[in-house]
């Protein structure tokens, strides 16, 4: 571990990233450009999030990484190992025990506290990109608060699908000012964006950092007659019986039998440890081995 500077990046670079983070916190939802560094992993593997995590981690932190809610996917495991190796920090799978959580595509079910930081991996930070390819023009739209185009996207959704079909990366307006892409979290998670923790967003390839400070107002865009709805599968978790968590649907055999289970693996196993048991679940102790 002594081969690396703490958390891989040199102190100069971390200072530069921290300045971008502070600016982002001062202007909620505003995309701050930063000089993204080469990381020992390809773009698309969360290099933006990794750089933000590297800049905020301290030796006392406990780190958790999730990918689509799970701690045990290749991506999550490799990022967790990366910081174990380069920063020697403690890691955990328990949301409640983590002080810094890096995530791809989910917000944990358990409500985050004011002493926690969540770092999102962002592929495309610009919410207006869909309809306006010009970066110069989208910057102007942000600076002049010209956001009509965002509703054109929702209009197109309704006219094509009969409803707002956007299910991920659902655009929000932050503190009544900047329209922001919350990264590809399911819209079910959008209400959680108003939280006590600090939220940091890092886009490596596009070299942008943005942030939502604690207790910031975050409104999902919608129409009066098509109000925003944080939908999820209308089902309970088959393992832990939770009815309030975001579910993944699995096909479990050749006959096409389905199973719904929490996408947040820590939430699910915590509930099962507490004795909750879903329709297809077995009591926790029995399958723990």
């Amino acid at each position: 571990m002594s081969d690396y500077n703490f958390a891989y990046l040199d102190e100069q670079t971390k200072r530069m990233i921290r300045r971008a983070i502070l600016k982002g916190l001062a202007i909620p939802g505003y995309q701050v450009p930063f000089a993204s560094r080469e990381m020992p992993m390809p773009y698309g593997w969360g290099t933006g999030g990794v750089q933000v995590s590297a800049a905020v981690l301290t030796p006392d932190d406990t780190f958790k990484v999730i990918d689509q809610g799970a701690d045990d996917t290749t991506n999550a495991v490799s990022i967790r190992r990366f910081f174990q190796k380069t920063a020697g920090i403690a890691v955990t799978e328990a949301t409640a025990d983590a002080s810094v959580i890096q995530t791809r595509h989910r917000i944990p079910e358990q409500v985050l506290r004011s002493d926690q930081i969540i770092v999102y991996q962002v592929p495309i930070p610009e919410p207006l990109r869909f309809l306006e390819p010009s970066e110069v023009e989208t910057r102007k739209m942000h600076s002049l608060e010209e956001y009509g185009l965002m509703h054109v996207k929702l209009y197109e959704d309704i006219s094509q699908h009969g409803d707002i079909a956007t299910a991920y990366a659902y655009p929000v307006k932050v503190e009544g000012r900047y329209v922001m892409d919350p990264s590809p979290i399911p819209k079910f998670d959008n209400p959680k964006l108003e939280m006590a923790g600090i939220q940091l967003f890092g886009a490596g390839r596009e070299q942008r950092i943005y942030a939502i400070p604690p207790y910031t107002k975050v409104v999902s865009l919608d129409f009066e007659d098509y109000p925003f709805q944080p939908t999820k599968a209308d089902h309970a978790c088959d393992l832990c019986a939770a009815t309030d968590s975001y579910l993944d649907e699995l096909i479990v055999d050749d006959e096409g039998s389905r199973m719904f289970m929490c996408s947040d693996t820590d939430y699910c196993s915590t509930r099962r440890k507490q004795g909750h048991n879903g329709a297809q679940g077995v009591p926790y102790a029995e399958d723990a081995a």
């Binding site: 185009l149 509703h151 309704i158 009066e224 007659d225």
Partner: peptide, 9 residues
């Protein structure tokens, strides 16, 4: 929508 029309219908 650019001048804040927010009723789809």
């Amino acid at each position: 929508m650019a001048i804040n029309a927010r009723h789809y219908g």
